[in-house]
Design a protein around this nucleic acid. Structure first.
Lengths: 203, 203
DNA sequence: TCAGTTCTGGACTTGACAGTCCAGTACGCG
DNA sequence: CGCGTACTGGACTGTCAAGTCCAGAACTGA
């Protein structure tokens, strides 16, 4: 049975393993990740890994949560600006800019895990879905603020608009990954922005 | 070296293998697919497989092409109707309906392969990208027809609108797969439809 | 019919990986 | 200090998958 670490040293060991596994999985996928490689990268041994995790699937659950956290934490500052039109523009520009720097490689780490799981592990799927939920919630709360401060019409269906916007992000990333061309993401986000703008109030 | 089949029997054998592999990959993913299982399902032996394909990666290239074909052929009839507003509605309804029947499972088979490959095999990636290109082209050509027959404004940027629409489809499928809830796809497609409708000409 | 090619069967080799085991070391606490 | 618990090292095992090999069957065309 997997043990929660009880000491500071144990916590650090577990964290090293999860971080290493998250990195390897991000580049090689779940099935392509061997526990040997994780252990090497984490400077840990097999028994340490099996001390903290039941098996590979258990480790992958931790990886799924860590991946969601990394993706969302990386946008935290931008999320805070989503309560204005220019904040949305900044957020989307940053997403496109990142893809340009990555040369269209990688896609969305959360989405990659969803695809790789297939319909295999329901717990992991739920963890990833919760990552999407938090992402959508950040968008929705920004839109709600824009309704409140009079930038968007008061009858705007923010839940729907947030869901649709996140879908544009995800689809744009997928197409960009397939084509190695950030243009697809840009087009998708311009679409999302145009849709939001149709609810804008002119001043 | 992989041989193209020279006889009818050979063509049938090769086709059986590709079809079996495509099915297995669709449910278990690339890494989760063993050649033994493919051979069993195709009622073929290992040497048959290696007679027609260099190695697993070579087989997966064929699977990627077959997967794109299956996905696009399944929408062929609906694509033909994309030259009208109601055709778009029918197409999107069919996509949502399919996800309802599948209980939100599976996602887009092309997208799944893109994610699973990571940045591993460039030939396969290109084959999948070409699948997306054909898909986008079908949408674009429908939009172009709608401009021509006066349903959309003549200055509509159909290339952008098609790209954005396909992104909504893909993102909607991804979120639906993660959440096991077709609502996400519906919301995404309603967003895409609302964007298209903003270029509509009232009659 | 008969030679040459295409195709097929399945055993075999090799390597990699998940998971086990147990002995040993560090740490916390009385 | 010394006892018990938390943690660590790394060798070991069993399983499974990719890819090889070669003999033999089926087909083709003359």
């Amino acid at each position: 049975m997997a043990k929660r670490p009880a000491t500071e040293r144990g916590r650090r060991s577990r964290h090293r393993i999860v971080s290493a596994a998250t990195e390897v999985v991000a580049t090689k996928g779940i099935e392509g990740t061997s526990l040997d490689e994780v252990c090497n990268r984490a400077s840990a041994s097999r028994s340490q890994l099996y001390h903290y995790f039941d098996d590979k699937a258990d480790l992958m659950r931790a990886v799924a949560e860590a991946t969601s956290d990394v993706v969302l934490d990386g946008q935290r500052a931008l999320f805070d600006g989503l309560n204005s039109w220019s904040g949305f523009e900044s957020w989307m520009d940053a997403l496109v800019q990142l893809q340009i720097e990555l040369d269209g490689r990688g896609g969305c780490p959360i989405a990659n895990l969803v695809s790789q799981l297939g319909e295999h592990d329901d717990q992991i799927r739920a963890a990833l879905a919760s990552g999407f939920d938090r992402w959508e919630e950040a968008i929705r709360s920004g839109l709600t603020a824009m309704v409140a401060n009079g930038e968007l019409q008061s009858n705007t269906d923010v839940a729907w608009l947030a869901a649709s916007t996140l879908a544009s992000v995800q689809g744009g990333l997928m197409l960009t990954q397939a084509r190695r061309d950030p243009l697809a993401l840009r087009q998708a986000l311009e679409g999302a922005l145009a849709l939001i703008s149709s609810f804008r109030i002119d001043h």
